[in-house]
Nucleic acid binder design. Structure first.
Lengths: 196, 196
DNA sequence: GTAAAATTAGACACCATTGTCTAAAACGTC
DNA sequence: GACGTTTTAGACAATGGTGTCTAATTTTAC
């Protein structure tokens, strides 16, 4: 409800009705609307974080085909963390009510994109160490990877349309291809060109 | 005011006070709040579009040093169209009230990012024609360019902090470096590596 | 089965906001 | 300077929301 209508747009009455509970019960649990709101946000954030780390752990320790593995990973990432309801809610929230709730906002920044960024950077560092990538700044590369994955989906997510599996796939493939061209060692790219 | 507080958050009284005008005058001009709102949005959109096209026209017809020109262009783009108040407003708006005003939303989609995307794609097509870039899908490249430029700034813009000129510059340089590595013809990259 | 705790429906005061109305004031034009 | 138009301040009803209260009902625990 907060997701769909924002903080002021969601009335306690509607929320209570949606929860099949009386308004008074809501007030019994959370003294006031703000408490309910922050509780919801924190819950959504925790769930999103959990989802994020399970997704991160799916990346194979010894990549078989780096490009394909990265594509599959990007698909899972956007599917689980970016295009789902929670992710959209959080981004929307931060944008619309971020200035009103600075501490929520800060907490999101550190637990959300902050964590995903550092975790991705660590993954890339491992891949560099194995000679599969050539990256000078891991943090920049991580941000760019996320940005590229989002590039094709941004319009859809803003639109409120959840992209189809096929759109997700091509978006991921476009992103990874560009990423690999920019960050794969020369011989890997040469090989890719030769096989193409 | 709509920008800072959203549609419902901004009261007519406050708006009238800010405009140094009585509430009744507002109602005389725009029969109701929604009309005022859509008028504001359209005005902001028009201004943003004008700004965008003047920015696009600054790109040199015969690039001297492509990488530097792209960096300068990216800096101007983020400065004029992405990080300024209007751009932030529009993104925020689309995200928070997009579902409530589908026609506004659609109009934004076509006149905002739609136009910037196709215009950028056209620019890249010219650069490819001159042999300065090697791109298979112009639209994808345009979206990726924008995404990369935003990659380092997203956090700042969400935070509400306007990045310093130096941050803008490094963000643009990171973006363009990756973009060039992915899309510059082999000999250009080889040259860049040699000179580095 | 009973007592304590939680939940419910509904009424309520309170507040902010929208949009209307009116009479007075300011403005512009000739 | 006079007349038509616009603006203004303030009052006003209507609406919809928050948070409180109460008395009745249900659930839970023992």
């Amino acid at each position: 409800m907060f997701c769909r209508q924002g903080f002021t747009g969601a009335s306690i009455d509607e929320i209570a009705a949606e929860a099949c509970v009386s308004r008074q019960t809501v007030y019994n649990h959370y003294r006031e609307k703000e408490n309910l709101f922050t509780a919801v946000v924190e819950d959504v954030m925790d769930r999103a974080n959990a989802m994020l780390f399970t997704t991160l752990s799916t990346f194979p320790e010894k990549p078989d085909n780096l490009e394909d593995d990265l594509v599959a990973f990007a698909v899972r990432l956007s599917h689980n963390c970016i295009c789902n309801q929670d992710g959209k809610f959080l981004r929307k929230l931060v944008l619309s009510e971020g200035e009103r709730y600075p501490h929520l906002f800060e907490s999101w920044r550190q637990h959300g994109p902050g964590k995903i960024g550092t975790a991705l950077a660590a993954l890339f560092a491992r891949l560099v160490h194995k000679g599969l990538l050539q990256i000078d700044d891991f943090d920049v590369a991580a941000r760019q990877f996320l940005a590229l994955v989002n590039a094709d989906l941004q319009m859809n997510t803003l639109f409120g349309v959840t992209p189809t599996e096929a759109e997700l796939e091509t978006a991921a493939r476009n992103a990874v291809r560009t990423f690999m061209r920019a960050y794969a060692p020369a011989q890997v790219n040469a090989l890719a060109v030769k096989t193409a």
